[in-house]
Amino acid sequence: MSQKGSVEGCDRFEYLQTLVTEFQDTDSEEAKEQVLANLANFAYDPKNMEYLSQLQVPDLFLDMLTEENENFVEFGMGGLCNLSMDPECRDIILQSSGINLVTNCLSNQREETVLSAITTLMNLTTPSSRSQITDPAILQCMLRFSLAESPRLRNLAIVFLQECCTEEQVAQVEQQMQGQQTAIGIPLPKDEGTAEICLCSRYSIPGRQKYVDSSVMLHPHVIMKNFYQMLLSDSSTPNWETICLWS
């Protein structure tokens, strides 16, 4: 009985280790997804945090953020969202320069991934990381999200703006937004064909399709550039904010 605690801990550690090993050894995408989801869910329970950080699972999750498989990104981001609540894991993520990787996920196509990224950024906010997390580009993105149609995204972005930065910062960024746009939070299209459809549908821009020539197959980045120019040209109109609504 007196050994139970540590024996149980050993078992848990070993089990998690088995999962990590399987994740690294298997070639099956499906198995990887399952194990990754398992690990991300284990990260919800504070009992496991210590073992997970010993097994370098925070780094494993961070690695997932740059994967092509969207499920990997979503699960990895979810795992980070769970882990980053814990101060120790938060520090590990910060040390592995997680802020940039997480910030990139703000532009993800999937709402769940974006939500996890916002919460993670909030969790990662410490006195020393605050300046990086309240970068004008990120605040602009949060301002756009705070106008989103999806209530979850809107609420979370508002909470971020309330908790992570000052009102002055927000006001400053709002002013900047009249001038120029940043790309953070705007989903990067998958390929040429769907790029502009994706952008126009996500930003529900009535009658603006003419700005993007659908007959020309463009590289996604070129389409993005055009899109920003379109936003820029619209910034003079009084209600340009409505353009940024998510569809």
């Binding site: 009992k47 945090m49 210590e50 814990d86 101060p87 919460t119 979850r152 609420n155 508002i158 909470v159």
Partner: peptide, 28 residues
Amino acid sequence: VPEYETVEDTRLKLQDRRSYIIRAARSK
């Protein structure tokens, strides 16, 4: 259905979760 939450609901939910984790970490 978290989409029915108000901003305040969301804020409190995150706050509660964070303090729960910190409490757990401390007692650990």
